[in-house]
Nucleic acid binder design. Structure first.
Lengths: 141, 141
DNA sequence: GAAAATGCCGAGCGAATTTATCGGGATTAA
DNA sequence: TTAATCCCGATAAATTCGCTCGGCATTTTC
């Protein structure tokens, strides 16, 4: 039930971009330094985020990356979905449910995973990058 | 953010044992057939469940496995923890937090993962095997 | 116009993890 | 005694993960 490093690093990188949202594009090298992440690995993470329209890039010297929308309008769930695929504890209840199993009509356990999936999505979609950089202690409930 | 097959199969196997709770021990071969799971793989799954005290075994002919406690007293969360380790989206907020990172005091993202972890545990610990076999349509909220 | 700083991107790769399979032993009912 | 079952360590195949490499494209700076 773990995120991969890709998802974790991605959220951390996006948090940096949220912090520096007003100060122009941030070069990847700098994010890698500040978050202690391999630069080349970070390249791979940032690519799908850009393609998904969550960030914009500026090429050339003085270039870098910046959030495509203000931090209040980017949910953590969006970032995670781009980097990890649909949020779901088992494949058969994933969003684009290609692999819906033949068992599903009679499957007693399906309900568990649907419920868990819904709660996971709920949490990740109610937290925006603004929440992450703003209120460090959002205590549960 | 997926369970491994081990966790998924384990919950399914335990569901079978819950259904047959009153009819004596169920042999592994039968569970494997009914759930279409590799018998030898299932052996590996059932071993830790027994060691954790969730099920009991009866050896020899007419033997098999049975829940160690009635279905109402076994939470899905317990099964998942035995087979998948602590329920947590990232290692640094896992229960036995060996790998607490040096970043943690200043870590802006930690709150996200703690909140997500708590919700995940909440869901899985509020569903018992009795719920799973009894009310097929527990609709969320 | 050259050089430096950046982003863009496909390919590959070693290690770990996952998902089994194998081969045998121990125990018990029929 | 035989068949059914659990017990269990070892290993193998497949997949995923977490990078690394190498090179090209674009833009600013000197």
């Amino acid at each position: 039930m773990r995120l991969t490093a890709k998802g974790e690093y991605g959220v951390r990188a996006m948090t940096i971009l949220a912090l520096d949202f007003r100060t122009g594009p941030v070069p990847l090298r700098e994010i890698a330094m500040r978050e202690n992440i391999s630069y080349q690995f970070l390249e791979q993470i940032v690519l799908p985020l850009r393609r998904a329209g969550l960030i914009n890039s500026v090429r050339g010297a003085k270039g870098g990356y910046a959030l495509a929308r203000p931090p209040e309008q980017i949910k953590v769930g969006e970032i995670v979905r781009v980097l990890e695929g649909p949020i779901a504890p088992v494949g058969c209840v994933a969003d684009g449910n290609e692999e819906s199993c033949a068992r599903s009509p009679a499957c007693l356990t399906r309900g568990i995973w649907e419920k868990l999936r819904d709660r996971m999505e709920q949490v990740l979609d109610e937290i925006t990058l603004a929440d992450v950089i703003c209120v460090p202690n959002i205590k549960d409930e």
